[in-house]
Design a protein around this nucleic acid. Structure first.
Lengths: 185, 185
DNA sequence: CTTGTCTATGCAACGAGTTGCATAGGAGGA
DNA sequence: TCCTCCTATGCAACTCGTTGCATAGACAAG
């Protein structure tokens, strides 16, 4: 389980409230790790109880008060320990692959619009990543000299970009296959 | 949730016992969907209760008897319904990406061996996929004319191959980044 | 003859993740 | 004024997934 660790990393990058974390998990972090606000609030509470993180009540004007969390010394130790122990290469779950194999027992052509929908979603994500890369790393506004943290964030982002490009190419391949199967019916 | 659907597809491709399904989930299907035997037995029982699949007791010699499951008419209907409804592009969970971003707050160089380990694991999987492709689709032993099912299975396998190649290239990228950060310490 | 491995199925407990719902103040528009 | 949206936090119930353990027959190696 690594949600705790994802939260620790995110809080080290920048302290924030449960709500803010939930929004980050919809955006940058969410590209390689998802979590709902329920999960985040529950885990934050446990982490606080275990002394991994500190809380600070922050009164706000024009909006409800928030609890800003930051990583405690113990949290850094826990994260360091996790970083040094090996993890298993992650298990994959591709609903779409199940559908594609299942289409053989139904109507392959009916899957075309679904695959096209996924294609658009991945194209959108790729555009979003590329915009982020330009803004934060390779564009004229980006800082010239980058520290280790930025270098590593960029490496992760490049992984996201590579993943989306691979998916787009593969979905094109799948679409071509589905079209090829169509006349045979 | 799609474990039921993955099982339906697998049983349509070939009927089998819970044990056999578990083995398939370690192999071909496991490349895009994982499940333990516990999960599979539990879900099979529920699916049988719901009339999605039929059971047949098969006595065996030299080994324990087994229960062979096959897809019932209702199961086909359920699968067809699922195939026709849209699914969300899957959420991702990359432990390694969390580790890489976390390494900024620890020792980036300590991650090198871990990344190399993952690199080897992905290289192994790629070799396995390529062997399977040669055996079942592109080799001299493979059937010349392929039906829709085989075409689609091949398309999914090509996706796995593309994924592993992308991962290997990205892990090379990450390793280069980690090495570049090393002298700065 | 005991130990280990493979086939084959399953229970029980726990932990992780999802879904629905609830509350509450402030902002902005119909 | 009412309705909706955004920020902000949380409970309760449920489903999904993992881990540990148990059973049991057949076979092979030591």
């Amino acid at each position: 389980m690594a949600l705790e660790h994802a939260i620790l990393v995110s809080l080290l990058e920048k302290p924030g409230s449960g709500y803010e974390l939930a929004r980050r998990f919809e955006r940058s972090i969410g590209y390689f790790w998802t979590a709902t606000h329920q999960q985040i609030y529950r885990v934050l509470k446990r982490m606080e109880g275990d002394g991994w993180i500190d809380v600070r009540e922050v009164p706000q004007q024009g909006r409800p008060d928030k609890k800003e969390y930051s990583v405690a010394a113990l949290g850094r130790t826990v994260l360091s320990g996790w970083l040094h122990e090996p993890i298993e290469p992650e298990s994959v779950r591709h609903d779409l692959a199940v559908k594609i194999r299942g289409a053989a027992f139904d109507d392959p052509a009916a899957l075309i619009s679904e695959v096209e929908r996924h294609h658009r979603a991945h194209a959108d994500r790729l555009a979003h990543y590329l915009a982020g890369q330009l803004r934060d790393f390779t564009g004229p506004e980006a800082p010239a000299a980058q520290d280790a943290g930025q270098e590593l964030q960029h490496a992760v982002l490049r992984g996201g970009i590579a993943y989306e490009r691979m998916m787009l190419a593969w979905l094109d391949d799948v679409l071509a296959t589905l079209h090829r199967l169509r006349p045979e019916r």
